[in-house]
């Protein structure tokens, strides 16, 4: 029964997709191209407006062309979509793991000590809601490197969900379990590693999953701002040329990569899940 439900759902998805794309394609026919006669018309590039939302078939053609050679490198301003995505992923990963390295230990500290929790809370509350991109001018000035600055922006946006979730997860570990550890005379460090970490792991990983989503959202905007390389620069460069086909294609690619990153973290969360 379950498998047949899955099959039916998949079929329905495909139908919805085909119908939507079909309606889009038919309703959005390109205007008839009239032969440009006068010099004025030629200089205007024909009489019809050029800009319109592209059809799925045009996007598909472009996607095929781009994906058949994703790693070309024709100089610093023209690289394949695959290379651009790798640049972005590299930045996200460096900022994200740096954030995890700092957020998880501090989260433990806050979760285990009510005093630290109360003392650090005001800072976290003020810093948390700041849009990561607002840090960019300051980062550029202090760090004096656009590459490091974009990594910093990823770092600062992914640190808060991990920090808060770790603190929450650690703080809500059942008191009984800690008491049991104490009766077994486990040291503080061993208690943290053997009892609290496994107990809080699902919450911590949930925080990490939220963080990677945010980091991927932010990298596109950061790269549009700083330029150079990355998927954000790709979008900006095509916007520069008002090329909506390429913009839609890159939107799709951003979505797919974001989904893969999220799935990886979801798998990891499942692995540490436990039933009481």
């Amino acid at each position: 029964m379950l498998s047949s439900l899955n099959v039916r759902a998949a079929l329905l998805s495909v139908v919805i997709l085909i119908v939507t794309l079909g309606v889009w394609e038919i309703a959005n026919q390109p205007p008839e191209v009239k032969e440009a006669k006068t010099e004025y018309e030629m200089l205007m590039g024909g009489s019809a407006p050029h800009a319109r939302v592209p059809n799925p078939s045009e996007i598909g053609t472009l996607a095929l062309a781009e994906l058949s050679d994703p790693f070309y490198d024709k100089g610093p301003n023209d690289k394949g979509i695959g290379l651009q995505l790798l640049y972005s992923i590299k930045r996200v990963m460096s900022g994200y793991f740096l954030a995890a390295l700092i957020a998880i230990p501090i989260g433990f500290m806050i979760g285990m000590s009510p005093l630290m929790h109360k003392a650090l809370d005001p800072f976290i509350q003020v810093l948390k809601p700041i849009s990561p991109l607002a840090w960019m001018p300051l980062a550029l000035f202090i760090l004096k490197d656009s590459e490091v600055s974009s990594v910093f922006v990823i770092f600062i946006c992914s640190i808060w969900p991990m920090l808060i979730n770790t603190a929450f997860g650690v703080g809500s570990v059942k008191k009984d379990w800690i008491n049991i550890a104490r009766t077994h005379e486990l040291s503080k460090l061993r208690t943290a590693v053997m009892v609290i970490l496994p107990a809080a792991a699902p919450t911590i990983l949930t925080g990490m999953r939220i963080s990677i989503g945010i980091a991927w959202l932010v990298i596109v905007a950061a790269e549009m701002l700083v330029g150079g390389t990355g998927i954000g620069y790709y979008v900006w460069n095509e916007w520069n040329n008002l090329d909506l086909t390429a913009v839609i294609f890159s939107i799709l690619m951003i979505g797919i990569v974001g989904m893969v990153l999220d799935l990886l973290l979801a798998k990891a969360t499942k692995m540490v899940q436990y039933v009481e």
Binding site: G75, P76, K144, S146, M224, L225, V226, G227
Partner: peptide, 20 residues
């Protein structure tokens, strides 16, 4: 020489000051 495309002048200025 690598000629590097830049999104705007504020960034161009900051990258010049940073010696990138």
């Amino acid at each position: 020489v690598d000629v590097i495309k830049t999104a705007g002048w504020a960034v161009s200025r900051d990258k010049s000051i940073n010696k990138e």
